[in-house]
């Protein structure tokens, strides 16, 4: 299967910071149609990885491609093919849901966005709130706004950075269901940063584990669960991988 995301020796060292790089020699392939969960403790390099893949950050060394386009040389092409929901983004409270989405749709190049917005809100079961300002929205509703803006332009790859952060259990379940449907119904490849393992078990088809900027594990979820029979849950598997480094 064709790789939706491919990195080769990807390394990032922040300016003026000596010592270990934030990301070291990351080589990874995520095939089209996968839901890939990148796991790791805080500071492991997950957000740095997503930042490079979404063209927000230039790598110090190595290369990365999304849908065959180099993130450095063809950043505009990459941006047109991806959707992105950063962690803890707040959007524009003074604007209504529709005004926020029209803004992002137009930035993505949609000339007549309203029909597409209706489709997306219908898909997310989020109709009826178009005229409401975001200042009245709960955290869970805001995350749905985030997903909506990320998929308006029909991207083939979706990057989600800690998408369930700060959500209540009902919000987590709702978002998890949306992620599964985005993959199964719309065929989107999803690259998700998280440290909540329950959502990984229920949504991801493959996982990778980063520790101190290095990829120490990468395999399908199914094989992972089979390969560690001594561990009862993904949480235990993750802690085992983290501790052993492989």
């Amino acid at each position: 299967m064709r790789a939706a995301i491919r990195t080769n020796g990807l390394t990032k060292r922040y300016n003026g910071k000596a010592g270990e790089p934030a990301l070291a020699d990351l080589s990874l392939e995520v095939p089209e149609g996968e839901v890939f969960g990148l796991l790791g403790h805080n500071g492991a390099g997950k957000t740095t990885t997503v930042s490079i893949l979404t063209t927000l950050l230039d790598p110090t060394a190595g290369s990365a491609e999304v849908q065959g386009a180099d993130v450095g040389k063809s950043s505009a092409k990459v941006r047109r093919s991806i959707g992105y929901l950063p962690e803890n983004v707040e959007f524009y409270d003074s604007l209504s849901l529709e005004e926020n989405l029209v803004f992002f749709a137009r930035l993505s190049g949609l000339s007549r966005p309203r029909e597409r917005i209706r489709e997306v809100l219908s898909f997310l079961d989020f109709e009826g709130h178009e005229k409401e300002r975001l200042s009245t929205f709960s955290k869970g509703m805001r995350q749905r706004v985030g997903i909506a803006q990320a998929i308006l332009h029909k991207p083939s790859v979706l990057f989600l950075d800690e998408p369930t952060s700060g959500l209540d259990p009902a919000g987590v379940k709702l978002l998890r269901d949306i992620i599964v449907r985005l993959n199964s119904e719309l065929g989107m490849t999803i690259f998700m940063n998280t440290h909540l393992l329950a959502e990984v078990t229920k949504t991801c088809t493959s996982i990778g584990v980063l520790r101190a900027g290095r990829l120490i594990y990468h395999d399908s979820l199914e094989r992972t669960l089979r390969s560690f029979p001594a561990q009862d849950s993904l949480e235990e598997i993750y802690l085992h991988i983290e501790a052993s480094g492989a």
Partner: peptide, 14 residues
């Protein structure tokens, strides 16, 4: 910067 929307804006083709 405070809303964290810069990352979102720069992930669009602008």
């Amino acid at each position: 910067k405070n809303r964290g929307t810069l990352r979102l804006l720069f992930s669009r083709p602008v």
